[in-house]
Design a protein around this nucleic acid. Structure first.
Lengths: 265, 265
DNA sequence: ATCGATATTCTGCATGACAGAATTATATTG
DNA sequence: CAATATAATTCTGTCATGCAGAATATCGAT
């Protein structure tokens, strides 16, 4: 049984990974998947399919709807970044983020916006015993994450409005109704005035975050930093000068960014 | 060390899968990845990272550029199908595809178009010793695959032209230059006249295929069937009435499709 | 050519991915 | 509203297989 196949199976295949990737494709192309069907498709026991799907859920590639069906998660369908500078940004940010997370003992995130989403490029975890976990690779609605709001606040309001009323927003699940929009608009205005954005359990249970935008030498927004903390610690941190701490880090990082050519933009 | 994390790690995690999914995210957000960096990011040996990346390549989630860098493949960034009827289509097609592949001893594919791409929903492999392998889950440029051409030929030419000149086509790597377009246009005209489309090694080395479009009760194109064969067998098959065989299958399948409500469309 | 760096192949061993059974949750039926 | 059926999830022993490390190959630079 010889299969002609230019894309031949690797010589040391990893079955678990192959199954996971096939599930990813099924989820993408079928829209939804029940555990039993998934098991049947892959030819594995339901228990195994369950473990695989649990991993997809964990990494944001799937979520379970109210009837236990597995459906595509945020992470499915976000295109590859055509942004060439994300690597550089990540590199430049790392030391600054580590410094900041070390100083505050809280977790610091770096993110960029793509469409109505923000993508977490990297995380520097704080050293507190109880801390917010790594979010690298996560994708969240930009209008809910603190860093996302910080970015959106500095874009042309008309463009933002279009963005979140478009039907691409609908597909992504980030549509904001005309009715709800004024409130959102006002929040962005406040963010613009304050110079930072906050998020109290808007994306994840028990987690609050404070975000601030990042700019290139030309003054254009290119991304954001955010500090994420357990809800209970937010207030004390804020009173102890959280905004200034992030602001300081932002300032220094932007100097670094300005100093580097970043050919793409 | 207690991490606050609403999205907690599954209790029986699969490390290999987790690593693969993280590579997927890195690839998406970083654009490109060298083996060594991948290994460093994951905290695994280069040999392990190599195996993982080989799997991603195998399933179309990554490709290697000329300098051995791993870059996102076709499968990354194709959004989830908002098409609810793909499940139904797959279901209805299956018996017909099995019949046809059994009759011809060749591999039969079912695909739908999304943007400038076609997605392979399912495959029924022929029983020949040497045959074309399973393509389920694959994503290919619609203008190169036989089934894709069959679909495009029946769409509004103006819309097709826009589709492949848009800069979303550029992002997807399917851009057709104004210079090359007339030839493509003529090919689609020929397809329309013939009622089928062919593909000789346009997508994969040594493989040829013949594709025919599928319609719903209203006469609108909804997808395509294709028969894929090793290049050497194409001619004899064609002369033995390949077109008629597929046409017959298509006719019967379309009866089934028309008979089923397909609420979405 | 020679070296250095990075990518790929190979192999033994211990880990951890798998199946199957047990348990729980959810749907269906009389 | 039981009672039953079906599907999802948890648990556990076993053996396959994913991992690391070494060997080899490939590519670039000097």
């Amino acid at each position: 049984m010889q299969n002609i196949d230019p894309r031949k199976k690797p010589q040391y295949p990893i079955e678990a990974v192959d199954n996971a990737l096939r599930l990813l494709q099924l989820l993408r192309d079928g829209g939804k998947l029940r555990l039993k069907d998934a098991a049947a498709e892959l030819g594995v026991a339901p228990s195994t399919a369950h473990r695989l799907l649990a991993m997809l859920v964990y990494r944001g590639f799937a979520v379970q709807d109210e009837f236990k069906n597995y459906v595509p998660g945020e992470a499915i369908g976000v295109g590859p970044a055509r942004l060439g500078w994300t690597r550089l940004l990540r590199q430049l940010s790392q030391p600054h983020m580590e410094l900041l997370s070390g100083r505050l003992n809280e977790t610091v995130n770096l993110m960029v916006r793509v469409g109505t989403k923000v993508r977490f490029l990297s995380t520097s975890e704080g050293s507190n015993a109880l801390r917010v976990g790594d979010r690298q690779g996560s994708v969240m609605p930009a209008h809910k994450a603190s860093g996302g709001k910080a970015i959106l606040a500095e874009l042309d309001p008309v463009m933002v409005h279009k963005l979140f009323s478009s039907n691409s927003a609908e597909i992504g699940g980030d549509y904001i109704s005309e009715q709800a929009y004024p409130a959102f608009q006002r929040e962005l205005d406040a963010v613009r005035r304050n110079g930072f954005a906050a998020n109290f359990e808007g994306t994840e249970e028990g987690i609050s975050a404070l975000g601030m935008s990042l700019h290139n030498w030309r003054g254009e927004v290119i991304g954001a930093l955010s500090v994420a903390t357990p809800l209970a610690r937010f207030r004390p941190l804020f009173d102890a000068g959280l905004v200034q701490a992030i602001g300081e880090t932002r300032r220094q990082l932007e100097v670094d960014i300005a100093a580097n050519p970043a050919d793409g933009e």
